[in-house]
Design a protein around this nucleic acid. Structure first.
Length: 656
DNA sequence: CTAGGGTTAG
């Protein structure tokens, strides 16, 4: 049914499509059409003597041998004798300049082929335009393009592709319109380039319609561009529709769709598609593996990620792939593996360093994160805003107020990075957790960018840690004024009330939430065992082994109670939806998942859980005590922080 | 001479 309605959507748009110029919404910005002033072209003299022919031949030979220095000398000699070679030879030379980044030489060739009023063929000018594009000298490319006597589809496409990949995407669309006015028909090259230029989803849809109209939607390149761009606009389902409709596809198209889902945080669908791809008989390449790893990262599938790692070894020198692998181990809580990868990587870029800094920080190794950040600086690698976020995060995690303030204050001067919302957020968190709630509030008011809902919720979180009722109410009000439907805020505030035994207010808030129709995402925990992922919801009865799980849970709770564990009923609201049983606390999804892990995993093996909501205080105590009693580590990844429970303690230091 | 895929935060 979904597919039908999606299809319908397209055909409606198609029927409604007026003339292209009106369609693309930007006609008003069109510049005047080109006026061409060029000197008259004359036929080139052929090399008149054998001496002249020798000079040209020598030049050609150097061009085809890719001997740039000698070719340039020979070019000089031709220039003096007013001799010209043919276009293909020049094109070879220009290719050579592009490959070596030889801007100066390229310009000399440009000058030479236009000297003495001669007008090179369209083909050759196209080559030169392309050269300037490759040198990222778009203005020069444009000047050259503007003075062309004749522009063919390649000339236009070269410029359109250039602008599509630049900051001035609207220029690509303008040029498409001018191209059509000029009577030159865009081809598949043109459309697959211009698709990237859409700055609104409606533009993309209109271009899509044009493509269907001219019958180019069957082209593999156009399709993969469509798939890619729909995914970039957060519409992976539309992309999947296009994908499924294709008769043939190649590895790049598979990579587009798999990458599309993994970038839209749908690791599950990305992995399903990967399985389909393998069944179809394609071999994964670097790009596929990168996306698959990203899928594993999102789902915290360490075992699957490890299997992918085996295939990564084939592409040992691929930096992007190694970065994805590194991140997978970090996000799956396996810092030993991550560190091993990081140490082994021969080439590291700022992303590798950032990933590792953040990995240490999120997993509770604050000192290591800060040391690594300093090691990075020592190598001369320049941190970016994300690296700095990582080091601030590390400071806030460990309560290192002074270090945090030092990095925050020096970031602009030392690294040239202006603090953004996230950096302020880290500082608010740091000050707030350290109990400096006043300073945290002051910082919000001093922010250079507008505080958003997340900013205020950070403060609210700090209020919970320190039970500051008044500020909590103030912060919650701020969050809800910016994002009235934020379920987390209602829950957080109601938990703060519950913590202070203000049950009436807690209940009132729950009621308000219900009246406003705000639904909290149901708590869910996942555990990967033996190539299978098991999902648990609160009070879930659906699992085939649920009886054994309940038994195991009762057993460990009984033993923990003997050791002094008292269920903290303040958190009874955490996962509740409406009036539920009193002992619901004992059936929080993570407790079910942990019990299942203990049941199924060999003794001593780490239990790894991923969950979609923040962990509640009771489950946190439960996991700490259980890890000690069972003598095995438990790792729970919530959407923000990582909790490594080991021997009665947690890596988060009880702040989260 | 012009075209498609991958990595860090939130």
């Amino acid at each position: 049914m979904k597919i039908m309605s999606r299809f319908k959507c397209y055909s409606i748009t198609l029927r409604a499509t007026p003339r292209l110029i009106a369609v693309v919404n930007i006609a008003l910005q069109l510049p005047r059409f080109y006026s061409v002033e060029v000197s008259e072209s004359r036929a080139r003299p052929k090399a008149s003597s054998s001496n002249h022919q020798d000079i040209v031949n020598e030049f050609s030979a150097y061009c085809y041998q890719k001997d740039l220095p000698n070719a340039m000398k020979a070019l000089d000699s031709m220039h003096k004798h007013k001799l010209w070679a043919d276009s293909v030879t020049y094109a070879e030379l220009i290719k050579c300049c592009i490959a070596r980044g030889a801007v100066k030489q390229g310009k000399q060739v440009h000058h030479h082929v236009f000297s003495n009023g001669y007008e090179p063929k369209t083909f050759l000018i196209n080559t030169l335009v392309n050269m300037y594009v490759k040198f990222n000298l778009l203005d020069e490319a444009q000047v050259l393009f503007d003075r062309m006597l004749e522009r063919n589809v390649v000339s236009w496409t070269t410029m359109i592709a250039a602008y599509s990949n630049s900051e001035h995407k609207y220029k690509a669309l303008q040029m498409l319109i001018m191209m059509l006015r000029d009577g030159v028909r865009p081809n598949m090259y043109t459309y697959s380039s211009v698709l990237r230029a859409s700055e609104e989803i409606s533009t993309l849809k209109q271009l899509h319609c044009c493509i269907i109209k001219v019958g180019l939607e069957l082209d593999v390149f156009v399709r993969s561009a469509l798939i890619d761009v729909y995914c970039k606009w957060g519409e992976p389902k539309a992309a999947l529709y296009i994908f499924d409709e294709m008769g043939t596809s190649d590895i790049v198209v598979w990579n587009s769709i798999i990458g599309g889902f993994s970038q839209n945080s749908d690791g599950d669908e990305a992995l399903n598609l990967f399985i389909r791809m393998k069944r179809t008989g394609f071999w994964a390449d670097q790009s596929t593996l990168t996306s698959v790893l990203r899928g594993c990262t999102g789902l915290a599938l360490l075992e699957l990620g490890r299997q992918v790692h085996v295939h990564v070894i084939k592409f040992d020198r691929d930096l992007v792939l190694n970065n994805a692998l590194l991140d997978m181990y970090c996000k799956c809580g396996s810092l030993k593996d991550a560190n091993a990868i990081f140490t082994r990587m021969v080439v590291k870029d700022v992303i590798s360093w950032s990933t590792m800094v953040i990995g240490f920080a999120q997993n509770g190794y604050s000192r290591k994160a800060i040391d690594l950040f300093e090691a990075m600086r020592a190598t001369g690698m320049k941190p970016n805003h994300i690296t700095i976020l990582g080091v601030l995060f590390a400071c806030s995690h460990a309560g290192l107020v002074e270090d945090g303030q030092y990095y925050f204050e020096s970031m602009k001067m030392d690294f040239g990075v202006d603090p953004g919302r996230e950096h302020y957020g880290c500082m608010i968190d740091l000050l707030g957790r350290a109990g400096k709630l006043e300073e945290a509030t002051k910082l919000i008011h001093e922010m250079k960018c507008e505080p958003d809902a997340v900013t205020w919720r950070t403060l609210l979180g700090a209020c919970r840690v320190h039970c500051d009722m008044d500020l909590a109410e103030y912060a919650a009000k701020k969050v809800l004024s910016l994002d009235p439907r934020d379920a987390g805020t209602y829950t957080l505030l109601s938990n703060i009330y519950a913590n202070s035994q203000r049950w009436d207010e807690a209940a009132k808030l729950r009621r308000l939430m219900r009246d406003r129709g705000i639904k909290k995402e149901p708590g869910c925990s996942w555990i990967e065992i033996d190539k299978q992922v098991h999902a648990f919801l609160l009070g879930d009865e659906a699992h085939p082994q649920i009886n054994a799980i309940h038994q195991e849970l009762s057993r460990v709770i009984r033993r923990l109670k003997e050791e002094g564990y008292v269920p903290d009923t303040n958190f009874v609201y955490q996962d509740l939806e409406g009036e539920q049983m009193e002992n619901s606390l004992l059936y929080h999804s993570e407790k079910l998942a942990i019990a299942f892990g203990i049941l199924r995993l060999p003794k001593g093996k780490t239990v790894r859980i991923r969950k979609n909501l923040r962990i509640c205080g009771d489950c946190h105590v439960f996991a700490k005590l259980l890890a000690k009693m069972e003598e095995r580590s438990i790792i729970i990844r919530d959407p923000i922080r990582y909790h490594h429970f080991h021997d009665g303690a947690c890596s988060c230091g009880d702040y989260w």
